[in-house]
Design a protein around this nucleic acid. Structure first.
Length: 204
DNA sequence: CGTGCGATCGTG
DNA sequence: ACGATCGCACGA
């Protein structure tokens, strides 16, 4: 496996969102590596996107990292309980990012089971196994991604993304983004991308 | 300083 | 369908 370089993240945000599909997200924590294959992602482009936290150049302590160079982690707390992970994209000053919405566990599934259900993997139902990482909050809980990862350089050694040497082919589906009904015209943007027929995609 | 709410999830 | 739960954005 080969770690993605800075240039990967500097590209057009919609392309980066699509190209992240099939890549392996890895978090090194507590002496182990937890990894999942990205199967769903959404683009957020501050300049034109009322759904983006950075819309209208809303530059605060929270969104600051989105205004910087590409290839850093933007982590935020949602509903007071769950963390979500984004990859900052584009040139410095552009305030765009890609939300990682779902993973297919790649390795470290045993630890993921403990982190999500405080149980060994063998005791999970088939349904619980799917629910380990099939949503943006769930995947962060499963991989131990939280506010400590805010601003993490994805070219570093703690949180990074790799390309498999030989990656299985897949088809990409496109749709409107999830839960942004407040975003006026932006709610209809087809900026969600996911791997067709993958069991870990958060919604049909 | 006070207040309303959210790029979600689990339960019913 | 609904409540949990709290940091933060924004207005006063």
């Amino acid at each position: 496996m080969e770690k993605l370089k800075r240039e990967f993240f500097e590209g057009n945000t919609l392309n980066v969102a699509k190209e992240l599909l099939g890549k392996i997200l890895i978090h090194r924590i507590a002496g182990v590596e937890l990894a999942g294959r990205i199967v769903e992602a959404e683009a957020y482009i501050g300049a034109v996107d009322k759904a983006a936290h950075s819309y209208n150049n809303r530059r605060t302590a929270r969104t600051e990292i989105m205004f910087g160079p590409a290839g850093y982690a933007y982590i935020y707390l949602i509903y007071g309980m769950y963390y979500c992970m984004n990859v900052v994209t584009g040139k410095a000053g552009e305030a765009s990012a890609v939300l990682i919405r779902a993973l297919e566990p790649f390795y470290g599934m045993q630890q993921m089971a403990f982190r999500r259900y405080t149980k060994p993997l063998e005791e999970l139902t088939k349904n619980q196994r799917i629910h380990l990482t099939n949503g943006p909050g769930k995947l962060c809980a499963a991989l131990g991604i939280d506010k400590n990862c805010y601003g993490e350089d994805l070219l570093g050694e703690r949180l990074f993304i790799c390309r498999e040497i030989s990656e299985a082919p897949f088809e990409i589906e496109t749709s409107k983004r999830i839960n942004i009904d407040y975003a006026e015209e932006a709610r209809d943007f087809l900026w969600r991308f996911y791997i067709k027929n993958n069991a870990y995609v958060s919604r049909k």
